[in-house]
Amino acid sequence: MKLTTVALLGLALVATPVAAQDGRSAGLWLDIAAAAGSARLSCDLCESGRDLGGSVELAVGAWAHPRLRVGIDAGALTRSDNNARETVYSSGVVAALYPRPASGLHLIAGLGWVGFRAEQFTYDAPRLRLGAGWDLPLTSGWVAGNRITVDGASFASLQNGGASVAESVGLSVVRFTLYIRRR
């Protein structure tokens, strides 16, 4: 985590003048989001349902280029079913690429960790995030927007109380997110 922070600060220092040229905010950005989403474990024994839950996400980073925003993010998606609470935690690095200078459309990619928790059941794996979003300017310093992201993870075991109950388990998380961001 320390390395990531140092890298981001470094990127911020480099990125500031570049970002400023394009009218996008210089320096750090901060993103706060709420989402509706669902998670699903995939394995021979896994329950196949995909139920809706609520999610919050926080991300912070810097502009590496007027069209490229990088940062770190963390979030949690949770739902309760039959008195059992399932929560999917995630964190990692994220990048957003704006293919057209004047457009709020951006493509999202990220790498990191995802952890599933449901009472004694645990699952931890590296995850890949892909998605797309759309910024809508609110003020000169703030944008709002929405995005859809899909997290995918695989090749990890599902544990219950420390004992493996399934191998090569996959996890997918789909989120539809509304956010505000300090540019």
């Binding site: 329950e47 009472e119 109950v165």
Partner: peptide, 11 residues
């Protein structure tokens, strides 16, 4: 399945 297992596993 014990605990939250009923929501996680289908056996």
């Amino acid at each position: 399945v014990g605990g939250a297992g009923a929501e996680v596993l289908d056996i």
